[in-house]
């Protein structure tokens, strides 16, 4: 098997897994799935711990390291929350993150305000938009994390820039929230509602609730999109496999062509000699 063949097989295994995930989702849970997505150390797990009321003990580990390249979920009363590995253009882990997003009904895209969206973030957002179809604008929510790390003016500038990028590359500007985990934690620990309010977490929660997530419709849309994509990929995979099969059969034919020719020549020569011999024998009788 060549390297190309083994790559094709690996691709095919991914394809088969995606398809079985989709088929599983068809009969999956009814609670809306909210996935948190973003670059490494963007504050995804931190946000999830706040949303799931894990204020003191972390349910979602906040050390976003490579070893934790897997999906972790928490089933709440109304929602299922899903943590995904941080994006960093590391193929295997990014695929896990994509798988996580594929299962989500709402994606909270977390961006830490160091600057505008990076190319990798935009690329993933584009894929995400495609998979959400008509529900993209509503169900992709932008979260600017660590909003207290910079001055409000700078944070707002960054938010503005990010929304412009979204508009340019995705065709829409999602709802965005400036979340401060530090304020929220302080507010909770010191029972200061003002700080809790200033963290804007409640606004995000309310927005999620007001989304009125039509789980069935969103899933059908996403499943339809994935199905179409998968059917195209299945066709491409079938074509590649059939091409490879033909190539192998063609190689067999050519690898034995010299032998076939030699045997044909021997066969003809023997038949001719036999006829000559029989004629000679008859003449002698």
């Amino acid at each position: 098997m060549t390297a190309k063949d083994s790559m094709a097989s690996a691709d095919l295994d991914v394809l088969l897994k995606q398809a079985s995930d989709i088929l599983a989702r068809k009969q999956g849970q009814d609670k809306p799935v909210i996935a948190v997505w973003g670059m490494m150390n963007a504050g995804k797990s931190y946000l999830l711990n706040m949303l799931t009321h894990h204020y003191n003990a972390e349910y979602f580990p906040t050390k976003d390291t490579r070893e934790t390249a897997q999906l972790k979920q928490f089933e709440g009363e109304s929602y299922i929350f899903l943590d995904t590995p941080g994006l960093d253009a590391h193929d295997a882990d990014d695929q896990v993150a994509m798988d996580g997003a594929a299962k989500a009904d709402v994606v909270l895209f977390v961006h830490q305000p160091k600057g505008e969206l990076e190319k990798i973030e935009l690329d993933f957002l584009k894929q995400l938009k495609e998979s959400f179809g008509v529900y993209a604008e509503k169900n992709i929510v932008l979260v600017i994390s660590k909003a207290d790390a910079e001055s409000l003016e700078k944070i707002e500038q960054i938010e503005q820039k990010v929304l412009e990028q979204c508009h340019l590359h995705l065709g829409f500007a999602p709802e965005s929230f400036l979340i401060s985990g530090t304020r929220f934690h302080k507010g909770i620990q010191q029972h200061k509602d003002g700080l809790v309010k200033a963290s804007h977490l409640q606004e995000l929660k309310q927005h999620i609730e007001t989304l009125g997530i039509d789980v069935r419709a969103v899933r059908e849309e996403r499943i339809r999109h994935v199905q179409n994509t998968l059917l195209l990929e299945i066709s491409a995979a079938e074509e590649a496999l059939n091409d490879e099969k033909l190539q192998l059969e063609d190689n067999l034919y050519w690898n034995f062509a010299r032998f076939n020719d030699a045997m044909l020549s021997l066969d003809l020569s023997m038949t001719l000699k036999k006829v000559e011999y029989m004629n000679e024998r008859i003449l002698g009788e």
Binding site: L23, I234, L241, K245
Partner: peptide
């Protein structure tokens, strides 16, 4: 080397059957 060919051909047929089944399920 020659005997690797039927193994690969069998794998291909298996994958094609899987894809066909998948297509029908989807």
């Amino acid at each position: 080397e020659l005997m690797k060919v039927p193994v690969r051909l069998k794998e291909i047929d298996h994958k094609l059957a899987q894809l066909k089944a998948l297509r029908e399920k989807l």
